[in-house]
Amino acid sequence: MNAFRFLGDMTHLFSVLVLLLKIYATKSCSGVSRKTQELYMVVFLARYMDLFTDYISLYNSVMKVVFITSSAAIVWCMRRHPQVRRTYDKEQDTFRHVVLVAAAFVLALIFNERFTFREICWAFSIYLEAVAILPQLVLLQRGRNVDNLTGQYVFFLGAYRAFYILNWIYRYFTEGHHSRWISWLSGLVQTGLYADFFYYYFLR
């Protein structure tokens, strides 16, 4: 564990907590893309399948449980919570996210570290996470006002992946040259997608 990765995990955790706070405190999810939240839940379920089989560390297991439960809680709120679900603007959140799931799955079948169920699920989750933010970015660009909490949520999500890129560079030079090209390329794509959001976010 290096500082970049820890900072990345904390920033990621913080982004999820900011979103939960916004939804819980304001009882509203206006401006939040439910499709992006559903994609993130699929990302965590596909990636943390080894939660019960591979024990890596207490930190690793606790964080996996936190990410899975928080993303499920957000999706549940946006679908089932009587007050919150009314504030979801369905007509605005129109991105066909099924296409993203299918594309990530096909990519995972072709590009993976080993052609096993676990590795294909892992690669699928990495590719899907890289594009999961798209419905949210489309919603932000459509919406007139980017409310602060949603803007901060996307900002922290972008920062988390940027920290991970520093983490991969650090590990490359300290731990030897293991092939992490799946993580690297997807991480670069993911951070790149945020670039235009950061541009508008800071100019706003």
């Binding site: 990765r5 990636r47 890596i56 690793n60 990410f67 570290e113 590795e119 892992w122 991970y164 293991h178």
Partner: peptide, 10 residues
């Protein structure tokens, strides 16, 4: 850990 190809990152 790398040998066992387990992914130790979140």
């Amino acid at each position: 850990r790398e040998g066992s190809h387990s992914h130790d990152e979140l």
